[in-house]
């Protein structure tokens, strides 16, 4: 096997995107995604059984398409990498079963990797200034909201904090729904917030009070925020007053963005790490990127944001992490690993 620049195919099925990526070392050759998002739209959120069914149908065609885009054939592959967790169990299992069989059929090693660490690995692809460690990483999507300290991508990742209830992306979806906006909520809230005053309503910032900070300094909570928005809107409606949707959307978004960036920067400062990496689908939110840029600049912290196509869930980041493990001399995973919906971030490879 080529250990300097291994050709790796990565498979990602932890949520509603069927992602297949092909990398050669840190070079991105293909990043192909089939999304079942449209099928979830009418339910207002990701339905696990719908996602798992969609993965089964999409996976093989997506692998074919990724290989074609990368202009490589299966027998050139040095290894297969796959997300083994965390994520939706039934969805993960489709990818795990497929990846194992593919690896056995090609007689190549398999690397089972951690989805969250994969998000960090995405930053290594096609860049002239490679990721430096240590770095703090803020990963925000519909499925997770996590703050990590990455001392070494393939051997030392620590969970600083995570959401104790809803993921940030989920909060966007739920608030969008109560404002009568469609799924997914992130872009809809953004659109609705145009012209709105972000300081019109002071919605609560979860886990930022001194007594909460003692135990939950780097944790997040968005459930109370969602409830506060619902209550505010309902009181308006009950009073027969119009709901200022733009102000509500802008103020809600501001509360989310404020707490996400404040805690991430607090972690950088406290730990003396002058780097912050963003990842996850919610990074598509322009306001989040803008506030993160402002605040990191003010604090003298380097901000890294991979291209959006590598921020949302994708197979290229999984392939990238697999390639890093190979280049770092790590042994392949043994074939008996399973899908672990709650795989801790400290387990970079299963």
């Amino acid at each position: 096997m080529n250990r300097n620049a291994p050709l790796v195919l990565g498979i990602e099925t932890s949520c509603d995107e069927t992602g297949v990526g092909v990398v050669r070392g840190t070079e991105l050759l293909a990043n192909t995604i089939a999304s079942s998002m449209d099928e979830h739209a009418r339910y207002g959120g990701v339905v696990p059984e719908v996602a798992a069914r969609a993965h089964l149908e999409a996976l093989e065609p997506t692998i074919r398409q990724a290989l074609a885009e990368a202009s490589v054939s299966l027998d050139e592959l040095d290894a297969v990498a796959v997300t083994s967790g965390p994520g939706l169990a039934g969805a993960l299992m489709v990818g795990v079963g497929a990846a194992k069989a593919l690896a056995v059929s090609l007689d190549v090693p398999i690397y089972a990797v951690n989805h969250l660490v994969g998000h960090v690995g995405a930053d290594l692809l096609d860049t002239e200034a490679p990721l430096e460690t240590p770095t703090v990483a803020l990963l925000v999507s519909g499925g997770h909201t996590s703050l990590l300290l990455v001392r070494d991508l393939v051997s030392d990742v620590e969970l600083l904090g995570e959401t104790i209830d809803d993921a940030a992306g989920e909060a966007f979806d739920k608030v969008a729904r109560l404002l009568g906006l469609p799924y997914p909520g992130g872009p809809e809230i953004d659109r609705a917030a145009v012209g709105g005053d972000p300081s019109a309503i002071r919605f609560p910032r979860g886990l930022t009070k001194p007594k909460d900070l003692e135990r939950h300094r780097y944790d997040f909570s968005f459930s109370g925020l969602k409830t506060a928005v619902a209550r505010w809107v309902e009181q308006r409606e009950a009073a027969g007053e119009p709901v200022p949707v733009a102000d509500v959307a802008a103020s809600f978004r501001e509360a989310v963005v404020d707490v996400l960036t404040a805690k991430a920067i607090d972690a950088c400062r406290e730990l003396g790490v002058p780097r912050l990496l963003l990842g996850g689908g919610v990074i598509a939110n322009a306001r989040l990127r803008a506030v993160a840029a402002e605040r990191t600049a003010a604090a003298g912290i380097e901000l890294r944001i991979p291209p959006l196509s590598l921020c949302t869930d994708n197979g290229a980041m999984i392939a990238a992490l697999g390639a890093q493990l190979i280049m770092g001399g790590h042994e392949p995973s043994t074939l008996g690993f399973g899908a672990d919906s709650t795989l801790p971030v400290t387990e970079i490879q299963a």
Binding site: R53, L74, M93, L102
Partner: peptide
Amino acid sequence: YTGLRVGIAAARTFALGIR
């Protein structure tokens, strides 16, 4: 379903792998 899909997914990619 959850188990059923594992075998179908594996069979499809194995077939792909050996063309």
